[in-house]
Design a binder for these strands. Structure first.
Length: 587
RNA sequence: GCCCUAGUAGCUCAAUGGACAGAGCACCGGCCUUCUAAGCCGUUGGUUGAGAGUUCGAAUCUCUCCUGGGGCGCCA
């Protein structure tokens, strides 16, 4: 946001380096770390170190860095739009003219509105595949992290300017589906799902799994049914289509509620034929080894890649009976994605347990001559466990159903709204409760490094205090509340505000950082960058709210503060939007 | 056995190789005739798992250990 000023400073630094005969080093800028002051800083340790190494001098690096910083500071003078320039302990600190920069930041935010922080449009297409739920199974809290993470990754990339294709790939075939149908035919033939279809489907899956383990005839029967499915027996296909749709309808309702949307739905069932053909081709080209009928069809990746130590190991691409596996459909799907769209990147949001699998798939694609294989990326995240490090499993029934969590969370949130804000209508209370509950749940999934395990427990999942979405939403509400007192009019400035409180400066500083945080988050694919930023922004606003009266201030301070409140509200709203969290007007 | 990953305050977690390792929760003490107290302020809290190395500078990079989690030919 302060690029013109920085460009001038960098030119001066470059000039200085040339003068002392040093190669030009790209300076790394960061906000000054001192509270109540607002500016940018950089250090000269690297430059000093380089110079000393080259001249083989015996000089202290921090000392030389300080000399350099001092020399640059002297060259900058006062013409570059900064209020103050100082050299401290090897750092060069540039302090903004608060009033001038405050006006500029606020004007930028108010001018751009919902697009404040949005990156300029890029031509690159990026596909993000997420929400690979299995049909005929339930939707539990373990899946929630995937759906939330995936959709926010999409939001981040979209906001950063990329052309994002949101892809969904739900497991609509496989042994779990056959097992489910087997049990259905045996015990529930003709039944239709109740209103609550996902729970019912999940219950029947658990039942099927239990029965399969106890019933001595199960294995043979399931295998026979699998064979009928594989032969496209019309009766089995009809049942499959019907029951599959029950699942898809239930999931769609849940996606809608979670705010996850998709541009493209792929299904393994639609990749199966291509997959088998591709595998046949692999066998012919000597890439896959056909061990049938006794062994499976597999690709010995290490051997093909010439790896000396075992790295990629062996990828099984087809069962010995010719039925398909994950890899059978993932390989042709990857190809289809790049055929459908000219992708700059193809991201797979799948939990960390499948890291080796995706390395195998991508390497196999590379070895079979797909030059784009290196544009595939597995975004691995850790799973959600229950206390005691218990992994949720629909097979074992050790799950917290998403609908149960949502129900409980919304009830609690509504109860708080009723207590805090009794004047609201029942409908408004419910809307706010939904926003708060979903926000809290989403935030707890996002405000954490992707690589860290989330332990789900009811108490912290339903805790709305501290670093959580409601805190940020509440800051938004407070800002809105002030603006409402002014009849939602954002005044024009009535002149320059000469003195700014430190809490005002910190708030403006935080607002000004938003565009860079967006870039960082999108580059690193880390929602944590935004969730953490949003909290710090809300903190800065609350501090301001506490210290700086707005409506009672004298002009021009009053108008300037109103504009600042509007800018803060907009920035909070924009960051929550990226996180897929609703910013309520009242709470 | 091999590979991946995590280890930071009592607990849950932050920290582009840079200034004094920061938040929240919990605990203790304050603040509502004031723009919504789902808030604010203050106090307490650290051998960054251990040890070595690289570097002017390491929670961060390298190596060796320790501990937890995960993965490794026909599950998804």
């Amino acid at each position: 946001m302060f690029q013109p000023e920085l460009n001038k400073i960098e030119a001066i630094i470059e000039g200085y380096f040339t003068e002392i005969d040093l190669p030009v080093i790209k300076m790394q800028w960061s906000p000054t770390p001192f509270a109540g002051q607002w500016g940018l800083s950089t250090s000269f340790f690297q430059a000093a170190s380089q110079e000393i190494q080259r001249n083989e001098q015996k000089v202290n690096v921090p000392q030389r860095a300080q000399e350099m910083a001092h020399a640059v500071a002297e060259r900058i003078g006062f013409e570059c739009g900064f209020e103050r320039v100082e050299a401290v302990r090897g750092y060069l600190n540039l302090y903004f003219k608060p009033a001038e920069f405050a006006r500029r930041v606020v004007a930028e935010v108010l001018g751009k509105g919902v697009d404040f922080g949005r990156g300029s449009d890029r031509v690159e297409k990026v596909m993000v595949e997420y929400a690979q739920l299995n049909t005929h199974k339930t939707f539990h809290v373990g899946h929630l992290r995937n759906v939330i993470l995936g959709s926010v990754i999409c939001n981040m990339l979209d906001f950063a300017g990329y052309d994002v294709i949101r892809a969904n790939y739900m497991g609509d075939i496989g042994s779990h589906v056959v097992k489910w149908m087997w049990n259905y035919l045996k015990r529930h033939n003709g039944e239709k799902p109740p209103q609550n279809s996902i729970r019912w489907l999940g219950d029947l899956y658990t039942e099927a799994d239990n029965l399969a383990r106890t019933d001595p005839t199960a294995e043979a029967e399931i295998k026979a049914l699998f064979a009928r499915w594989d032969a496209r027996d019309p009766e089995v296909i009809a049942l499959w289509q019907l029951t599959r749709q029950w699942s898809l309808d239930g999931f769609d309702a849940m996606f809608l509620r979670l705010g996850a949307r998709f541009d493209k739905y792929y299904f393994p069932s639609e990749e199966e034929d291509d997959g088998k053909q591709l595998i046949a081709d692999f066998i012919q080209r000597g890439i896959a080894v056909d061990g049938r009928p006794n062994e499976a069809v597999f690709v010995d990746i290490d051997k093909l890649a010439g790896e000396k130590k075992e790295k990629y190991r062996v990828l099984v691409v087809l069962r010995s009976d010719g039925t398909s596996l994950y890899a059978t459909t993932d390989l042709p799907l990857a190809i289809r994605k790049f055929n459908d769209y000219n992708l700059a990147k193809s991201i797979y949001v799948v939990d960390v347990r499948q890291s080796l699998y995706f390395q195998q798939v991508f390497k196999t694609l590379e070895l079979t001559g797909n030059s784009w294989a290196n544009r595939c990326q597995h975004l691995a995240y850790e799973i959600v466990n229950l206390p005691g490090n218990l992994t949720m499993s629909s097979r074992d029934g050790t799950v917290v159903l998403l609908e149960d969590l949502l129900k409980e969370a919304v009830e609690r949130a509504v109860a708080v709204v009723r207590k805090k804000n009794a004047d609201l209508s029942t409908e408004e209370m419910h809307q706010i409760g939904e926003a708060v509950a979903l926000g809290a749940i989403k935030y707890s999934m996002l405000d954490r490094e992707n690589t860290k395990v989330v332990t789900f427990d009811w108490e912290s999942a339903l805790n709305y205090d501290g670093q959580a979405a409601p805190y940020i939403q509440y800051a938004h509400v407070r800002a809105n509340s002030i603006l409402r007192k002014n009849k939602n009019m954002i005044p024009s400035t009535k002149g320059e505000q000469v003195t700014l409180e430190s809490s005002e400066i910190n708030l403006i500083d935080m607002i000004s950082r938003f565009p860079n945080e967006v870039i960082k988050a999108a580059e690193e694919l880390k929602p944590l960058v935004i969730s953490s930023y949003a909290f710090r922004l809300a903190q800065a606003f609350n501090d301001f709210y506490n210290q700086c009266p707005v409506m009672k201030a004298e002009e021009p301070m009053r108008s300037n503060r109103l504009r600042l409140v509007a800018a803060a509200k907009q920035t909070i709203s924009n960051s929550l939007a990226i996180l897929g969290i609703t910013a309520p007007e009242a709470m």
